[in-house]
Amino acid sequence: MRSYTLRGGKIHPVVATTLILSICLAGCAQVTVPTGSNNVDTPTVLTGSIPTPSDQAYSDVNADDRAVIAENLDTLSGDLDLSEESKDVMLSWLNPVSGNSGTLTKIETATFDATGCLSFHTTANTIAGIKLYSGTACRDVTQRFAVTALSVTDT
């Protein structure tokens, strides 16, 4: 059997073949680091050092709470004419799973006919405390509301 020399030592042909094959296959492998997410339900926050109002709202009011808010907006839209400018309606919501609750107010429907979206304010009584949030809810393909934006409001 033939052997090859490498700086004073001998290399067996099987070892040489395995070494060359592993080097070639290593070039085909990819190692990537995720830099973003296409998942709109759980956005990737890339920097935790500069919190934004939407990051804080996302951590305080979870996806289940947002679904409860959207369900309450659905019940409201069946009772009222959404073509009016503004609603002076207060609508309470409660998520029995998380225990979070709040009140929907200032439901603005001025752009509903054009976009299928409405804006609102809601309070949220969460473990982090009681805060005021402003948000947007739009109709999805099933014609039900889904909360598309929510951020902490100072006033």
Results as ranks from 00 to 15, higher is better:
residue 2 R to T: 15
residue 3 S to C: 09
residue 3 S to P: 13
residue 4 Y to N: 05
residue 4 Y to S: 05
residue 5 T to V: 13
residue 5 T to H: 15
residue 6 L to R: 08
residue 7 R to Q: 13
residue 9 G to I: 10
residue 10 K to T: 13
residue 10 K to C: 03
residue 11 I to H: 10
residue 11 I to R: 10
residue 12 H to P: 10
residue 12 H to F: 07
residue 13 P to M: 07
residue 14 V to N: 09
residue 18 T to C: 05
residue 21 L to D: 09
residue 23 I to Q: 14
residue 23 I to M: 14
residue 24 C to Q: 10
residue 28 C to V: 13
residue 28 C to T: 14
residue 28 C to H: 05
residue 30 Q to A: 13
residue 31 V to K: 07
residue 31 V to A: 12
residue 31 V to R: 07
residue 32 T to H: 04
residue 32 T to A: 04
residue 35 T to N: 06
residue 35 T to R: 02
residue 35 T to I: 12
residue 38 N to Q: 06
residue 38 N to D: 08
residue 41 D to Y: 09
residue 42 T to N: 01
residue 43 P to Q: 06
residue 45 V to K: 01
residue 47 T to K: 02
residue 49 S to E: 07
residue 49 S to R: 13
residue 50 I to G: 08
residue 51 P to E: 03
residue 51 P to I: 00
residue 52 T to R: 11
residue 54 S to R: 07
residue 56 Q to C: 01
residue 57 A to H: 06
residue 58 Y to A: 09
residue 63 A to G: 02
residue 63 A to R: 09
residue 65 D to E: 13
residue 66 R to P: 01
residue 68 V to Y: 12
residue 69 I to Q: 02
residue 73 L to N: 00
residue 74 D to I: 00
residue 74 D to P: 01
residue 77 S to Q: 02
residue 77 S to I: 00
residue 77 S to E: 14
residue 78 G to F: 01
residue 78 G to R: 00
residue 78 G to C: 00
residue 79 D to H: 10
residue 81 D to Y: 08
residue 84 E to P: 03
residue 84 E to C: 03
residue 84 E to I: 13
residue 86 S to G: 03
residue 87 K to F: 15
residue 88 D to H: 08
residue 90 M to V: 06
residue 91 L to R: 07
residue 93 W to M: 03
residue 96 P to Q: 04
residue 97 V to S: 14
residue 98 S to R: 06
residue 99 G to S: 12
residue 99 G to C: 13
residue 101 S to Y: 07
residue 102 G to T: 00
residue 103 T to V: 15
residue 104 L to E: 01
residue 105 T to H: 08
residue 106 K to D: 12
residue 109 T to W: 00
residue 110 A to H: 04
residue 112 F to M: 03
residue 113 D to A: 14
residue 114 A to R: 14
residue 117 C to K: 07
residue 119 S to D: 15
residue 120 F to V: 00
residue 121 H to Y: 12
residue 121 H to D: 09
residue 126 T to Q: 08
residue 127 I to K: 14
residue 130 I to D: 08
residue 132 L to E: 04
residue 133 Y to G: 00
residue 133 Y to F: 13
residue 133 Y to T: 01
residue 138 C to V: 09
residue 141 V to T: 04
residue 148 T to Q: 12
residue 148 T to P: 02
residue 150 L to Y: 07
residue 151 S to L: 05
residue 152 V to T: 14
residue 153 T to S: 14
residue 155 T to D: 10
